[in-house]
Every structure is written in structure tokens, then in C-alpha cells.
């Protein structure tokens, strides 16, 4: 009972923060509300059992992204950080709820959360779960899947991060010369 109420409250907080981000007039407040939104979302990830994702969401979403936005905002004039929000177009007001209903309808076909007989859980996960410790001496199956069974994915991800850093440096540090 308490558990269900907590989850409903948490989801309500996430929704409130998400909508407040778009309704606030001042960009600075928007950035801080976005940070709190990320933090609430991290709690939701932890509730779903994805502690790794919760970790990353809390550190990047609530920490790093907020700092990046703030540093950018410090370089803008006050007149740029106040927003005049025009009323949303009619197509958006009517279309987006329709799209949401359509997505909820489609979500009915997903297998229930935590169902042991769902296709992802019977296809390849048991192989990982059974062999992970014998193969790699790593009790955390997520790590062994990420770094060993799917090592190439992680390698290319690392290359992507490296490329992003190089691109940012090239674009933003041009003013130096």
C-alpha cells in the first residue's frame, strides 16, 4: 500500500518537474528544475532495478548537465535568458495527447514488467546469467555483458564519447587564436 503510494508520488514529482521545466519563464530556474527532474528520474530507475542507469542519470543529468547549462547561461545576456513563450500551436495541443494515447495503447502489447517468460528473458539472458561467473569471475552480470560479451559495443561507445569531446573542443576553443 505504502509502496504503491510512494511510487505514484514519485511519478507525480517526475511529471511535475518535467512540465515545470517548460512552463517557467526564467531559463535559470528551468535549468535547476531540469536537474531535480533528472534526480527524481534517477529514483524511478532505481525503483525499476536499473541501479547502473540510476547512477548515470543522477551524476550526468542532475550534476554534469546542470553545470554545463549554467556555464552556458553565465555567458548570455539577461535578455536572452528570459523567455517569451508563444502559445503552443493547435496541432501540438491536439496531436501530442493523441500520440500519447496511441503509445499507451501500443504499450499494452509489451510483456509485463519482470515477467520471467517474456521473450527477452528466455532468449539469451539465461545464457549470460548461467555462464557469467564461470567465464569471467565477475558476479555483476551487467558488467560482464557490457565489457566482455558485448565488448565491441562499449568500445564504439567510448570512441563516440571521445569524438564528441574532440568536436566540442574544435568548435568552442576557436576563439583562443
Amino acid at each position: 500500500m505504502t509502496y504503491a503510494v510512494n511510487i505514484a508520488l514519485l511519478l507525480l514529482l517526475v511529471l511535475t518537474a518535467a512540465s515545470a521545466t517548460f512552463l517557467v519563464k526564467e531559463l535559470m530556474s528551468s535549468v535547476f528544475i531540469l536537474g531535480s527532474y533528472s534526480f527524481f528520474l534517477a529514483l524511478v530507475w532505481a525503483w525499476l532495478g536499473a541501479v547502473d542507469v540510476a547512477f548515470v542519470e543522477a551524476v550526468i543529468g542532475a550534476g554534469l548537465a546542470t553545470v554545463l547549462f549554467l556555464i552556458t547561461l553565465f555567458d548570455t545576456a539577461p535578455k536572452d535568458s528570459r523567455l517569451r513563450r508563444p502559445p503552443p500551436p493547435l496541432a501540438g495541443v491536439l496531436g501530442l495527447p493523441l500520440l500519447g494515447i496511441l503509445l499507451l495503447f501500443a504499450a499494452n502489447d509489451l510483456s509485463p514488467f519482470g515477467d520471467p517468460a517474456s521473450p527477452p528473458n528466455i532468449h539469451i539472458s539465461p545464457m549470460y546469467l548461467q555462464n557469467s561467473y564461470a567465464d569471467t569471475l565477475t558476479p555483476n552480470v551487467v558488467t560482464s555483458v557490457l565489457m566482455d560479451y558485448r565488448g565491441f559495443d562499449t568500445l564504439i561507445e567510448t570512441v563516440v564519447i571521445f569524438t564528441a569531446g574532440i568536436a566540442c573542443a574544435l568548435l568552442l576553443r576557436e576563439a583562443r587564436s
Binding site: 554534469l64 553545470v67 554545463l68 556555464i71 552556458t72 553565465f74 555567458d75 562499449t154 567510448t158 564519447i161 571521445f162 564528441a164 569531446g165 566540442c168 573542443a169 568548435l171 568552442l172 576553443r173 576563439a175 583562443r176
Partner: peptide, 21 residues
């Protein structure tokens, strides 16, 4: 390796953004 890469990239992006200062 991943940790070093991510750490250097993150600080590189932030320092690039704050470069004028």
C-alpha cells in the same frame, strides 16, 4: 580505459565552454 576517456572528455567539454573566462 573507459573511465579515463569519460573523465577527460567531460572536463574537456566543460573547459571548452568556460574558455572565455
Amino acid at each position: 580505459g573507459v573511465a579515463v576517456d569519460v573523465a577527460v572528455t567531460g572536463i574537456s567539454i566543460v573547459l571548452s565552454l568556460a574558455y572565455h573566462d
